[in-house]
Amino acid sequence: MAEFSPRITLFCCESCGFPAAERAVKQGYSLSPECRLIKIPCTGKLDVLYILKAFEAGSDGVAIAGCPEDACRYETGSLRAKNKFDKTRAILEKIGIEPERIKRWQVSSSMGEKFSRLLSAMEEELANLGPLFPDRLKKRGDN
């Protein structure tokens, strides 16, 4: 199979996840064009619907990047995100999608290096898993 660049949607919280991504880029990490960052105020706001819609939008993987659990800016948000994450994983398993396609990262705002490491690892894992919708992959190439 030709080299495929996994499409990843990352829901990043404003306090930690998004600045961590910013920092990673500032430190020289180059984000693949198939990586899309959606900024939300807190990962606690995340709806299971958002994640499922992200997959529907052709994502091969979805990551939730939020504050470390015991240091969430809004105190309980990160933990609530964990609930959603667990729920979504259960749904994915039920409908036959590999649960590894969804990740939950705890990165504080300054952890640019950790962010880039986690993202690279995820890209590699997804590359091995293959595209979620192989027929949509072709269409992607035309764009």
């Binding site: 920092r23 659990e69 705890q106 950790k114």
Partner: peptide, 18 residues
């Protein structure tokens, strides 16, 4: 606090500008 699911230890936490 960096006891993330990826398993980084205490040392990890220091490695960044705050």
């Amino acid at each position: 606090s960096a006891s993330g699911p990826e398993g980084q230890g205490e040392e990890e936490m220091v490695r960044n500008d705050c």
